[in-house]
Nucleic acid binder design. Structure first.
Lengths: 177, 177
DNA sequence: ACCTGAACACCGTTCAAGT
DNA sequence: ACCTGAACACCGTTCAAGT
């Protein structure tokens, strides 16, 4: 909804920073990618970033938003039906950002903005998983706990990389009616 | 197995550092508890700690070892039988160190020592959980995936605090034969 | 062997000054 | 409004020097 030319320019610059941050954070991790290096990648002085973002965590939130939207768009295009395969796809996509997932969990307490993002993300994820499990035929009475377990299992697969076969077995167990 | 007086002194001092680090790391978190503050707590100069530990991550590994032994001793004294209650107990005990769990996952790639500790910990945890689930009557063919799911679910409950009732429902679902 | 003061190379962030 | 040079208050770690 940028109206004025000035706001458009500002948003464009902000997007440029987020794009560079996305590459750096995803490829090298949040801690390893310093504000200095990010600024160099964008072509500005380090403190210039603070004109566009309150702090480094706010840059991270913007990166997470961008990453989430991109994956979400693909998820919605997924062929329906085989819930095991759909869960596996989610686990595989999240795998690209597993460093970031660990960072988010580690920084929750320090950054209220990140904490808020995390809660929104989980609310959304649980809603979607609820649909998937219902689709898979999980009994309605058990679905609350089963949704949580599925979310945690998918997160666990990020923190602890497993061979493909084991991942599939886990997703199948999660989708078992 | 400290033999000489000198080795005894050294070990005592090391233990002293670990005890102080344990308090600081558990109460305030690994990142928030700086080497400087740890040194002050022990009563030495910051760089003195490097005489006893290679780096800050090695202090963390020592803290994790100490914490794990303490909890393990209690676990072995637990009344057998109700697997749901036993899982819940584990989740509750781990809750004391949930900041540390997040830190471990976030630092795995940076610290080989931490990574090694983490793998040993999971190997042990899975062994124990395997026994619990077998006890609960989980079918042998499904037990591999179910063990992983249980580990991940317990870890998930640390990263995302839940009301007691939900935790119990999750543990019950995990223990369901 | 054990401990330290001083220094190093960073880090995220702030501030006063420029345009 | 946007950007910067310089500085601030940290951080973990190293090194040469002391005992």
């Amino acid at each position: 909804m940028a109206r004025t030319k000035r706001e458009q320019d500002r948003d464009a610059k902000r997007d440029e920073i987020v794009a560079a941050a996305r590459r750096l954070f995803v490829d090298e991790g949040f801690e390893a990618a310093s504000i200095s290096r990010l600024a160099t990648a964008v072509g500005v002085a380090p403190n210039t970033l603070y004109w566009y973002f309150k702090d480094k965590d706010e840059v991270l939130v913007a990166v997470l938003d961008a990453e989430f939207s991109a994956r979400m768009a693909e998820y919605l295009l997924l062929p329906p039906g085989d819930v095991t395969e759909r869960l596996l796809w989610v686990a595989q996509q999240l795998d690209r950002v597993r460093r970031l997932v660990a960072t988010v969990h580690a920084r929750l307490e320090k950054s209220p903005a990140l904490n808020a993002w995390h809660e929104r993300f989980h609310a959304l994820s649980e809603e979607m998983l609820r649909v998937e499990l219902r689709q898979a035929g999980v009994a309605e009475a058990a679905i609350g706990a089963r949704v949580k377990i599925s979310v945690f299992a998918i997160e666990g697969m990020l923190a602890h990389p497993l061979p493909e076969a084991e991942k599939r077995a886990i997703c199948a167990a999660l989708a078992a009616g």
